[in-house]
């Protein structure tokens, strides 16, 4: 994290339990302003639980969350409202804020303009992911949390979306927390990363450093990482 700036999101010693099962066990994490941070780890490690807790959907058993700004989440599986139009989906993203103009999203994803009257459920997965990102952006977040951007999408589409995210980050200074099973992608576009395993942060540091760590290479990058 850049020195001196107050982090946008700080998570301290977070514990989350579902009944008797402990989903998160003392997690520490921070995202600075205008930072792009990756959270990688295997299925069931607690990535989505962490996002849901930060989003206020799940109550923590212990720990502290400080969020100095607005957060919007692009949920895993996109979860659009399938029987509503693209535009209505986008407008609902602005529930928390006053401004419901969808223009900026269309500027970002011009392809959505011609789809605006279509039912969201009838779109391709890639188009749905654009709507899902756009819907989250409508909430004018300071921090955009994206849960499994790449899941079920063709590589080209993933690349396009990833570029869009990097663009957003560079141009408007929006912080991005990218939760990914695809560690290679995440480490490529984020400057810093956390590795979560079984509800605990196993490793963290700059992406460069993690990329060259033998554990990460063996577990997430399928052997030696080729530059």
């Amino acid at each position: 994290m850049p020195e001196g700036s107050e982090p946008l999101l700080e998570v301290h010693d977070l514990v989350v339990r579902y009944g008797a099962a402990t989903a998160l066990d003392g997690v520490d994490l921070a995202v600075g302003r205008a930072e792009m941070v990756a959270l990688v780890g295997p299925n069931g490690a607690g990535k989505t639980t962490l996002l849901d807790t930060v989003s206020g959907l799940v109550a923590p058993a212990a720990g502290r969350i400080e969020l100095r700004g607005r957060l919007a989440q692009v949920p895993e599986g996109r979860r659009l409202f399938p029987e509503m139009t693209v535009e209505d989906n986008l407008r609902l993203g602005a529930w928390r804020v006053r401004d419901r103009r969808v223009g900026p999203v269309y500027e970002l994803f011009p392809h959505l303009v011609e789809l605006r009257r279509r039912k969201a459920g009838s779109l391709s997965c890639g188009e749905q992911q654009m709507v899902a990102v756009g819907r989250a952006l409508m909430g004018q977040p300071d921090l955009l949390a994206v849960d499994e951007l790449s899941l079920g999408l063709a590589p080209q589409i993933v690349d396009t979306l990833a570029e869009h995210l990097q663009d957003l980050n560079r141009r408007s200074g929006m912080a991005i927390l990218l939760v990914e099973q695809n560690a290679r992608l995440a480490l490529d576009i984020c400057s810093r990363a956390y590795v979560i395993e079984a509800g605990r942060i196993a490793l963290s540091g700059p992406s460069e450093q993690l990329r060259s760590s033998p554990e990460v290479q063996a577990a997430y990058l399928g052997g030696a990482y080729e530059e």
Binding site: S55, L57, A72, Q73, P75, R79, L80, F81, P82, E83, M84, D88, R91, L92, G93, W95, R96, R135, G139
Partner: peptide, 19 residues
Amino acid sequence: GMALTACSSDQRAARLMGI
């Protein structure tokens, strides 16, 4: 009304919007 429809369509997504 759309927010209500959203709640019946996908509660989790609706809650993420802040509804």
